[in-house]
Nucleic acid binder design. Structure first.
Lengths: 343, 343
DNA sequence: GCTGGATGCGCGAACGTTTGCGCATCGTTG
DNA sequence: CAACGATGCGCAAACGTTCGCGCATCCAGC
């Protein structure tokens, strides 16, 4: 099924090429076609080859709905996406689309954005018989979770710890934050500020805690905490607040628990005439492409997004094949990327 | 079908509630249930009410695949999304998700990113019988277009002029750019630079032309052109190049044909010790939320995204109902948003 | 020559919905 | 009183796949 020749986009005849079309032309039963195309070895290699050839010649494409009807599997993965204010979700979606295609899965966007999910929206899960669900939103999409649980649809949370009955894939937030703390301390920084998230984001909490524990372990005072609301604007506001502090109270290092907030901090500092790392080190977490821009040159922990999505899809696939597999939580270590902003 | 009460997430019995379940309980034929739920007036109002009540009680949800099989319509809209480097596409996706849900449509992500679309990916269009396709990518997704055309799937391009046989919804790029040119000239700017896109993006071309025509009409010299590659980084590089010019050759105004590049320009200027609008006015196009940040305070033309998506979905819906409607191109005027960066 | 297992394939039901057509029943009109 | 048009609903055939069985055919072994 690899390098196909040009391939006629559509059979000239009005009707779609189906398994029955093929079966008649070859002279075997439709069930044989179905099995052959799946590579069932009970069908002779020769017959399989003939069928594959004809299928390609006629531009046969399986009808997903028909398959869903009879097999119960749709090949669809429902996706619940976080708000557009954090580019991380955009990266995540792109990676998910890319990897899903390679596994014969498609992404059905159930919901995108910050708001809660309406019942009507969540119904898509049932209507389209999604095989699994990928959730990335920071907020807990209550109804979707309930629907999935009630219908045995496996759920995997990405970048968020599991709630309800579901699996999860996250970056090792504590470890990453500890690395950042240790880096900063090694650079000589001693007075810390932490820009946290306001929502009950588990990811934010873990990064917060990991950082503080590391400071404590090194015998340092806990950081001054500011709310960054998970957005650039929130980080900007926090940066302004920090810049407005009298110099003797100013931290010499700022950890924003997500890159997008760290960028806000940097921009605010710069507007106030301060610069990272000259006046203050700034570090983030996520590993957004933008963190690498010379403008930010942000030290951060890069989440292993490809690996995370890969594991998430694998977890889903395993649970589609065998509901009843226990929930699983996977934590992957990110990569500390030291750039200029940390001094 | 509005304010539903809590609604049992799933019927306790193992099997899904179908139209047949309902028909048996009510004592009418399945076809009657089907018609009643669609509000067919051939079914008496009383029967319809009874059916609606039971359906809700049992938590009936139509089976999308079954519907697709028999009616040929899937309720799915294929989406081809541009690269993650331009936040505009993220905004677009979110708006599309929001509006599609309200119309009983769902979004199936066919492809996301900058690269060309593989045949295997495009096959999803056929497999899932998408009713229509929304394309936003800057690049021309050749194969998808061909597949759609060959199978009578209506296509609407958003933020891109029509090619092949399809409709399109765009912002009035020429008009918007002209407004920007006139604004800048009114502010006393005379020496212009234009940061354009390298790809053969129709949108970029139109904005470029609109701006230049306006300058010409006002008797001014054409702008110096730089390539911004449609990314922040590209804009940044262009900004660096501009900042590196000897002062007497420097433009006093820069038009980047998309906000994301304009932001790159601003960041580069700032890094070089220059500032907008003090040393140079900078304006963009798109109306990204980020343009409003105090950090950028970017004058721009805001694309009427909600209206654009709305029109796009309406165009699709009309063409699903009646293939054979002629292709249509809709151009909507954006709103000039004057902020600080234009001086 | 008969049993026994591969090997290779066909039969037919099932999945849940839509939809064209047709058939009662009822009230109205000529 | 017969003919007739509404009104309200049922019948049954699709739609394209999958999958549990079951049935030939063939070859080997006793």
């Amino acid at each position: 099924m690899k390098d196909l020749p040009p391939k006629a986009p559509a059979p000239p005849e009005g009707r779609r090429t189906t398994i029955v079309t093929l079966s008649r032309q070859i002279g075997v039963a439709p069930s044989t076609i179905s099995r052959a195309l799946k590579g069932d070895t009970r069908i002779s290699a020769e017959t399989r080859a003939r069928i594959a050839r004809l299928a390609q010649e006629l531009g046969y494409t399986p009808h997903a709905s028909a398959r869903t009807m009879s097999s119960g599997r749709s090949g669809l993965i429902g996706v619940v996406l976080g708000p557009p204010t954090n580019p991380f979700y955009t990266e995540l979606l792109h990676e998910a689309v890319r990897q899903a295609a390679g596994r014969g899965m498609r992404l059905l966007v159930i919901h995108a954005g910050a708001g809660a999910i309406e019942d009507l929206t969540a119904d898509a899960l049932l209507q389209y018989q999604v095989d699994g669900c990928l959730m990335t939103s920071v907020e807990l999409p209550s109804h979707v979770g309930a629907v999935c649980a009630a219908n045995g649809v496996p759920v995997v949370m990405v970048n968020r710890v599991a709630r309800l009955n579901c699996s999860a894939v996250t970056c090792d937030n504590r470890f990453g934050s500890r690395q950042l703390a240790e880096l900063l301390v090694a650079q000589g920084r001693r007075r810390f500020a932490l820009v946290r998230t306001s929502t009950s984001s588990s990811t934010g909490q873990e990064r917060d805690q990991g950082f503080c524990e590391a400071l404590q372990a090194m015998g340092l005072a806990p950081p001054r905490r500011l709310d960054g609301r998970s957005t650039h604007q929130g980080g900007y506001a926090a940066g302004q607040a920090i810049a407005a502090l009298p110099p003797e109270q100013r931290p010499d290092a700022v950890f924003a628990v997500s890159d997008v907030m760290a960028m806000g901090v940097i921009d605010a500092l710069r507007m106030a005439g301060l610069a990272a790392p000259r006046d203050m080190a700034v570090v983030g977490f996520d590993g957004l492409p933008a963190a690498a821009w010379p403008h930010y040159d942000l030290t951060t922990v890069e989440q292993p997004l490809p690996a995370m999505i890969g594991r998430a899809l694998d977890l889903l696939r395993a649970r589609m094949a065998d509901r009843g597999l226990p929930d699983e939580t996977v934590s992957l270590r990110g990569r500390l990327v030291v750039r200029g902003s940390s001094g």
